[in-house]
Nucleic acid binder design. Structure first.
Length: 410
RNA sequence: GGUGGGAUAGUCAAGUGGCCAACGACGGCAGACUGUAAAUCUGCUCCCUAUGGGUUCAGAGGUUCGACUCCUCUUCCCACCA
């Protein structure tokens, strides 16, 4: 009897471990994670998992949710999440980038960003098992002496080992001295929070390990396990998903956009997204993959299912269904979308100007070019005259396949 | 602190007195094609009611009929030396 319970426990722990390991790029100190899980299953002991977020932009995208979903898994198995907001680092500004020093955010901006951040995050995380912490609560109080003590834990040679520093150093890209402080500060967060596990992207490896090193140096009697998630590629399938590259799917994107963006990824990239973003089990995904290979399943159908799942997660099943119908209407059958922005003017307008005013062209020069190339339609009919004047009436303006506007001329 | 090198469009990167709104690559946009907003191929890619005009090559001056190109100063970056 007793042995049976033991067996059941081991099974559960293994199951949990498997789920935790899914999609990870690297796990350091797996044993520790196993021990934490064991303590949870046997004694109901909870533990802490830390993840840091930078509040510089108010929008989360799917790249962030890879981490969030992993955190949610941990919550399922007894973890309290330390949702760390890098409020200190944001206020001093990160000098990464060339000549432009990043704008220093005001306290109000940060607070504003964070509230939108957390509402988005709680679409995935369990709020009751999450502690939101701000690192300026402790980093802000450190003295110069504390900082120097902290800095003495790291040699310049070691710092230069860090991949992006060494790359930048070799390619003569500037590195500000303050940037050297970042890994230390992030590592110190783990000391202060006494984190049991920290998760982050593979690009964070150095910083994550710094947490381990500093926890040892400050002798807090534990060293965090580190779990690294791969960086999610953006829509282009090459570069990492980021807002500045414009290849992202935002958590708060409209359902139609979200659905369409997922469908626009390549068939290869789709599997990556499945692994990192879908709630389907790896076995289920393998079945889909096999199906596509045998040609018993159409890749478009598989991709649509993924688009549906993701859209439904951040909106609702209904919204996802609508997005799907809409997409088919607009793209497969090339009909016009349901919702189109409407504009009106009070006098005859020149077509190029009208397109700019309706925000579907950036400049009249661009509008002329698109007209010349046959990219502009009025009421579904291609036009070729870039001098056309729109007189009284209602028009459906279209640029390319995706940009629509209704214009009423009075 | 000294010496030398550099800053060009969204990014990277050519251009070293007129042929420069500025090669090329990437990105972006449009067209064709397609299961897709994928892939591929083609065209376009500073602004302006345009066979013309305006504003650009870190910033400010100067030389010249004419400057991204030459000179001076300023700002920022890099390397070597200290």
């Amino acid at each position: 009897m007793h042995i049976k319970i033991k067996e059941r426990e081991i099974e559960m722990i293994n199951e949990a471990l498997k789920e935790i390991q899914r999609g990870t790029a690297e796990v350091i100190d797996e044993e520790r994670i196993e021990k934490l899980l064991k303590a949870y299953f046997e004694e109901g002991k909870t533990y802490t998992v830390k993840a840091g977020f930078d509040p510089t932009a108010p929008d989360l995208h799917l790249g962030h949710t890879v981490l969030l979903q992993k955190l949610a898994i941990f919550q399922k198995y007894g973890a309290r999440v330390q949702f760390l907001i890098g409020s200190f680092t944001a206020t001093i500004g990160d000098p990464t980038g060339k000549n432009i020093t990043r704008k220093v955010l005001s306290k109000e901006d940060i607070v504003k960003n964070i509230s939108s951040y957390t509402t988005q995050a709680f679409k995935i995380l369990d709020e009751s098992k999450t502690d939101i912490v701000y690192n300026d609560d402790w980093l802000g109080k450190m003295s110069a002496a504390d900082m120097i003590t902290l800095a003495s834990n790291l040699t310049v040679a070691r710092m230069l080992e860090r991949d992006d520093f060494s790359k930048r150093f070799k390619s003569n890209t500037p590195i500000a001295t303050s940037e050297f402080m970042y890994p230390l500060l992030q590592g110190y967060d783990s000391v202060y929070l006494k984190s049991d596990v920290e998760i982050g992207g593979t690009d964070q490896k150095f910083n994550l390990l710094m947490g381990r090193q500093l926890q040892k140096a400050y002798d807090i009697k534990k060293q965090q396990a580190v779990l690294m998630m791969p960086i999610l590629e953006g829509l282009d399938g090459v570069q990492k998903m980021s807002k500045s590259l414009g290849n992202y799917i935002g958590v708060s994107d409209a359902p139609n956009d979200m659905f369409g963006k997922v469908l626009s990824i390549s068939d290869d990239l789709m599997w990556r997204y499945y692994e990192l973003l879908s709630n389907k089990s790896l076995d289920e995904i393998a079945v889909l993959q096999q199906g596509v290979q045998d040609q018993t399943l159409h890749p478009k159908k598989v991709k649509e299912d993924l688009a549906f799942e993701i859209t439904a997660r951040f909106h609702s099943a209904d919204a996802a269904q609508n997005a799907k119908t809409e997409f088919e209407k607009v793209h497969a059958k090339s009909q016009i979308p349901t919702d189109i922005a409407e504009f009106s003017v009070n006098e005859t307008v020149w077509i190029c100007k009208a397109l700019v005013d309706c925000a579907i062209e950036p400049s009249t020069s661009q509008a002329r070019r698109d007209i010349k190339q046959g990219g502009v339609k009025i009421d579904q009919i291609k036009i070729s005259d870039d001098k056309l004047q729109l007189t009284t009436g209602e028009y459906l303006l279209q640029v390319g396949k995706r940009k629509f506007a209704k214009l009423k001329v009075n």
